[in-house]
């Protein structure tokens, strides 16, 4: 299987002094959904931002390692060039233009790929993926719920016609029922297109539900990787992605597992 993205020994430094990544290695297989798990501050968002390109405002730089996309070295490539290559990010926070309506949020998107093509048609395509958005067409995005914003953010990213979609925190802060709907929508989109997706998650359950392969990031390094069915049963992952020092939580989960097993035995 070929890889669409290959990140080797990536190091990122903010403001010339604060090192956020300490040599991250990961791969995204073409046409697959890959998950990047980790706790707060593990460096997940930085990894995605480094791949999708910084802008001058970020004051961040790739100081070592490289990013290869479709075999081409794109290390340090800035926005909007990365978008023109087909790498599109759904950011964690501030993911929609709150002062614009849902339809306008889709229309402002501009890439050489989307430019010139038929507008209504692109909009309708997105509304097929997210029927809920069609009804909200003329509503300001600032009035949408968290789940609707996530759908709109994914939708407007899709307008860029990505080959590789990077999603930062798919489920964070959303109600479980909405998360289930979004997971279903993403599976649907993934089945209809040959999109490759790199998904950043704090929830292992969501990551395992979608991804076929996963990486676990801890303190700016990948600590663990594997196919999700292997990760699912990995003892270490529970402790790892909960972060160090949260042994209490790990105990709780271990106890819960034991109780479940006991019930199963009875």
């Amino acid at each position: 299987m070929t890889d669409i993205l290959e990140v080797t020994e990536l190091e990122v430094t903010y403001q010339r002094s604060i090192r956020a990544l300490h040599g991250v290695n990961l791969r995204v297989a073409k046409g697959q959904i890959t998950a990047l798990l980790g706790a707060n501050g593990a460096g997940k968002s930085t990894t995605l931002r480094a791949i999708s390109g910084f802008i001058g405002l970020d004051n961040a730089r790739v100081t070592a390692g490289n990013v290869r996309y479709l075999g081409e070295d794109i290390t340090g490539l800035q926005l909007p060039k990365t978008i023109h290559k087909g790498i599109v990010l759904v950011p964690e926070r501030d993911k929609v233009f709150t002062n614009l309506t849902v339809a306008e949020n889709l229309e402002v998107v501009s890439t050489t790929r989307a430019e010139g093509s038929n507008w209504r048609q692109i909009e309708e395509e997105i509304f097929v993926y997210f029927p809920r958005l069609a009804k909200l067409r003329n509503k300001p995005a600032g009035l949408l719920s968290g789940g609707e914003r996530q759908m709109l953010a994914i939708g407007s990213a899709l307008v860029c016609k990505p080959n590789l979609l990077l999603i930062d925190e798919l489920s964070l802060g959303l109600a479980p029922v909405i998360v289930d709907e979004i997971i279903e929508r993403l599976r649907d989109i993934h089945a209809r297109t040959d999109l490759s997706i790199l998904l950043v998650e704090q929830s292992a359950a969501v990551a395992f539900a979608l991804a076929s392969y996963g990486f676990v990031l801890e303190n700016g390094k990948v600590e663990l990787e594997g196919a999700t069915q292997d990760l699912r049963t990995n003892q270490k992952i529970l402790e790892l992605y909960l972060g160090t020092g949260s042994a209490g939580r790990a105990d709780y989960l271990a106890n819960a597992r034991r109780r479940r097993e006991e019930r199963a035995n009875v």
Binding site: S52, I55, L57, L79, P80, I83, H84, V88, L89, P91, D94, K95, V96, F97, T98, N99, L100, E104, N105, E107, V108, V109, S110, T111, A114, S156, A157, C160
Partner: peptide, 23 residues
């Protein structure tokens, strides 16, 4: 107009505008 909308969008969130390919 689309460029007018892009002006409003960029004013609201310049980073997101860049991430959506707006020059």
């Amino acid at each position: 107009s689309r460029w007018g909308m892009r002006m409003r969008a960029s004013g609201q969130n310049a980073l997101l505008a860049a991430q959506r390919g707006i020059n």
